[in-house]
Every structure is written in C-alpha cells, then in structure tokens.
Amino acid sequence: MKKMLGGVAAVAISVAFVSEAAATEWNVSVWGKRRAFTEHVEKLAELVAEKTGGEFTMNVSYGGLSKPKENLDGVSIGAFEMAQFCAGYHPDKNRLITVLELPFLGVSTLKEEVAVSNAVYAHPAVAKEMAQWNARLLMTSPMPQYNLVGTGEPRDELAEFDGMRVRATGGLGEAFKAVGGVPTSVPATEAYNAMESGVVDTVAFAQHAHLSFGTINRADWWTANLNPGTVNCPVVVNTDAYDALTDAERAALDSSVDEAIAHYLANYGELLKRWDTVLEEKGVEKVVISDEVLSQFRDKAAVPARDKWIADITAQGLPGQELYDLVVTTLDNTRAGN
C-alpha cells in the first residue's frame, strides 16, 4: 500500500510539474508608469490570461527590462517577448512606419489613427522590414494630435517658433525645424527634466503624456489646436516567441487585440473629456492658434516633409509613394464609412 501511495504521489507531482512547465509566460517591456498609453497592453494581458485559464500570462514591466529606445533591440534578440516603442526613437530601424509620423496628415480622431496604422502595419513591405528585427507588429498605440506646453509668454505666432527648443521626435521634429525650431528627441521619461533645466523651451506631447510625465506641471500655456501630427508607437512581439505559441494561445492573443484597442479608446476618451478641467486646476492657459498661423505652418512643413519622405524612401528601393497613398486612401475610406 505504501508503495502504491508513493507511486500515486509521484505521478501527481509529475503531472503538476508538467502542467506548470507547460504554462507560457511572456515579459513585456514598456516605460514610465501605467497610463492611458499602456492601457491596451494591460488589457491584452488580462484578456489572454482569462481566455487561457491562466496558462498564458504576461508580466508588464515599466522600465525594468529596457530603456525605451532599446525596446526593439530587446525584442529582436529575445531578451523579452513583447514591447512597445515609438518609431521616432529610431527611424532608421523602422523606416516605413514613419509615414504615420508625417506632419499634418489630417488624422483627427483616435479611430482614424487606428485605421491608418492598421493599414500600414498590414502592408507586406512593412512586415518584411519588421521581420529584419525578428519582430511582428501586433497593435498600435493610438494617440491624439500632439500639442505644445511651454513657459513664459505663449508662442502663438510662427515667428515665435524660430529658435524655439522643442522636445519633438520624428516627423514632428522635422515640422518644427521647418519653421526655425530646434527639436530634440529626448525620451518621454526625460522630458520633464529637460524642461526644468531649460534644455528645451517647449514639449510636444499628447495629453496623457503631459500628465504622466509632469510637463503640464511646469507649463504656463498649452496649444489647443496646433495639431501638427502625432507619433506612432507600435506594440510588437518576438517572432520566435509568437511562432512557439500553441494554436489556442495564439488564438487567445490575436482575438484579444481588437478588444484591447476598444478598451484603450474608451479609456482615452474619458481623459480627453476632463482635459479642460485639468488645465483649469493647474492654472494653464489654453492657447488657440489662428487659422492664418496654422495655414502658414502647414505650407512650410507639410508638403516639403511629405515630398522628402517619399523621395528618401523611394531612393532606398522601398514603396514610399504607395505607403503615403495608402494612408490617404484609408483615411478617406474611414471617414466615408462613418
């Protein structure tokens, strides 16, 4: 009897060990702190765990695995299975998705941002470029148009942008450079210190980032309608890790993306509803730029940036014009569908 019980116990322990060993655990690298920008990642982890009965889990790390500008590299070498990054942090590594960071594309809602991002991510040339980094694009992190916060007198004339030191990455940086600005691409986590120390005069962020990284706390004013563009920040997965998932795990992951994005949009919508209250509470002046100044800004920044991007990408043997046209067509179709 003792031998029989011992055998049963051994089998039970063995089964428990195999069951534990079979569970899949992914590490996910993001940065800063939990905020509107990361809510889809958090929701994705929650959904995947629910759908797999806890057999597939994700540990979301806020800066503990990598620096923001090194997240794509980390995914590439398999240091972690999933990560969020922004295209403007290393445009040479993700040339094609930077089309989504061109200034004044005309995207005006988060749903439109999701639509154009999804269309670009699905293009074969984009998938091929990401494959060079052993990465697979999973979902976007849609953000509203960026706007500036600054100190001192508001900069609401184009001439006042001349010499302005601004924290702005990618296409946004190029847009401000076109009107005499001096862009710097410090990571979001360093923007407050750059503003506090006077390294920059202004910071371009979406609303959630001005809150999360504290730049709104140093601001005297905020531009309500400059809307020069936004940055594109995908969530990617390591290709080997994705391929190693079971069919059930992969189905749980893929089927959760749209749900996670829907949660993100609803959550961000609530933030936008209370933004004016935030400005009032913090004593930040809401600055409205005149139509004339906006038109001048677009003339100097939009067309030159677009033409240069298309020419540069095409010269590298990549479909620059095709991708730009895809963005425009998708935007038109999305609006027509609404």
Score class of each variant (00 low, 15 high):
284 V>T: 05
287 V>E: 06
302 A>K: 13
288 V>I: 03
300 K>S: 10
300 K>W: 00
303 V>T: 14
301 A>T: 03
302 A>E: 06
286 K>E: 04
288 V>P: 01
290 S>F: 13
293 V>P: 05
278 V>G: 02
291 D>R: 03
304 P>M: 11
309 W>R: 02
286 K>S: 02
307 D>N: 12
290 S>E: 04
302 A>W: 08
277 T>A: 15
290 S>W: 14
304 P>L: 09
279 L>W: 13
276 D>N: 03
302 A>I: 05
275 W>E: 02
283 G>D: 05
307 D>K: 04
285 E>H: 00
272 L>F: 13
290 S>P: 03
275 W>Y: 05
274 R>I: 13
301 A>W: 03
299 D>Q: 12
306 R>L: 14
297 F>M: 14
284 V>E: 09
284 V>G: 06
298 R>C: 11
274 R>Y: 11
272 L>M: 14
306 R>F: 05
290 S>D: 02
299 D>I: 09
305 A>E: 14
285 E>P: 00
305 A>Y: 13
291 D>Y: 02
304 P>I: 09
277 T>F: 11
300 K>A: 14
284 V>Q: 09
281 E>V: 08
307 D>T: 07
293 V>E: 13
300 K>G: 01
301 A>L: 11
301 A>I: 10
308 K>C: 10
300 K>Y: 04
298 R>S: 07
297 F>T: 02
275 W>T: 00
284 V>L: 10
284 V>D: 06
277 T>R: 14
272 L>V: 07
305 A>S: 13
280 E>I: 11
285 E>L: 00
293 V>N: 06
294 L>I: 09
308 K>L: 13
273 K>V: 09
278 V>M: 03
282 K>Q: 12
300 K>E: 08
287 V>S: 05
288 V>C: 00
276 D>A: 06
273 K>L: 14
297 F>V: 06
301 A>M: 12
299 D>H: 01
307 D>F: 10
296 Q>T: 00
288 V>D: 08
278 V>Q: 01
296 Q>L: 01
302 A>D: 03
277 T>C: 12
309 W>P: 14
281 E>Y: 08
301 A>R: 04
304 P>H: 08
297 F>P: 00
298 R>W: 12
297 F>I: 07
303 V>W: 08
290 S>Q: 10
308 K>D: 02
297 F>K: 01
290 S>H: 13
281 E>D: 15
307 D>R: 10
293 V>Y: 07
298 R>Q: 15
274 R>W: 09
286 K>T: 02
309 W>E: 15
300 K>V: 03
291 D>N: 11
278 V>P: 02
275 W>L: 06
276 D>C: 00
288 V>F: 07
299 D>G: 12
295 S>H: 03
308 K>E: 08
291 D>T: 04
286 K>L: 01
272 L>A: 12
296 Q>E: 11
280 E>Q: 15
283 G>R: 11
297 F>L: 14
308 K>T: 12
301 A>Q: 06
296 Q>D: 09
289 I>G: 00
282 K>R: 10
